[in-house]
């Protein structure tokens, strides 16, 4: 196929990888922030307090029902006019993906905590476990088993969705790709096919192992 040489032009692949690293960093930072926040959100969701329950419900439902791109617009365009805070695209993305990750992970944490039957707590009490011991030795190991596979799945979705950052002006892999295509427009007229094809494959190479890991863990923990 003619034109594939565009990928071999010095620097092009490195530039693409650099662009991908920008989105990956946004994904990784958001995932790292989502884990502690998600655990807190999940614990808040299990509280009986009606006010906390309603706030958490609205938070989760709003994040769930709105497309991620709308959330990005709200933070990127809206917060600047509403509060005077001016976030760049990368900061806006990290805020949105963290809010999203914390909500979704929180719901997973809630589900796994609620899936532990009451008899487990009672049995632990009978055996003389303190509340902390019950949580650390009885509840947590069982909750984590249910939690890890869907959490890895969520991480895959977050990494995939970071591609949207491009639409609020973050210079990431697609934007770098566009620059390369434009630069070599006359030399390689078919550049778009190869560059977008390469980006497609790069994303797949990141997401596929994560999805395999999620399934592997699911099988391991199902026993």
């Amino acid at each position: 196929m003619p034109g594939a040489e565009i990928l071999l032009e010095p620097g092009n692949i490195t530039r693409l990888l650099g662009g991908l690293w920008v989105t990956l960093q946004i994904g990784l930072i958001s995932i790292a922030l989502s884990i502690p926040l998600g655990i807190i959100v999940g614990m808040l969701m299990t509280l009986k307090n009606i006010v906390v329950k309603i706030i958490m419900r609205i938070y989760l439902d709003f994040i769930r029902i709105m497309p991620q791109l709308v959330l990005l617009y709200i933070v990127f365009f809206g917060l600047a006019t509403g509060t005077g805070l001016n976030f760049d695209g990368i900061t806006s993305s990290v805020i949105v993906f963290t809010l999203w990750g914390a909500a979704e992970l929180g719901d997973l944490v809630r589900g796994s905590l609620e899936s532990i039957p009451k008899s487990q707590y009672e049995s632990a009490q009978v055996l003389g476990f303190s509340r902390f011991q019950t949580f650390a030795h009885v509840v947590l190991p069982q909750a984590v088993r249910r939690l890890v596979p869907p959490s890895v799945n969520l991480a895959t979705r977050m990494v995939k969705t970071t591609s949207l950052c491009m639409l609020i002006g973050v210079v990431e892999v697609i934007r770098v790709g566009q620059q390369i295509i434009d630069f070599y427009r006359f030399q390689y007229p078919t550049g778009a096919l190869w560059i977008y094809g390469a980006i497609f494959i790069l994303y797949f190479l990141i997401c596929f192992p994560l999805s395999l890991a999620s399934r592997g863990l699911e099988k391991r923990f199902a026993k």
Partner: peptide
């Protein structure tokens, strides 16, 4: 199924809309 789930829609669209015309 693996390819469809392992890539973002935005990239799929760019490949379809900007890439495929080259073919």
């Amino acid at each position: 199924i693996e390819i469809s789930r392992g890539t973002p829609l935005l990239i799929q669209l760019f490949l379809i809309f900007f890439g495929l015309p080259k073919l």
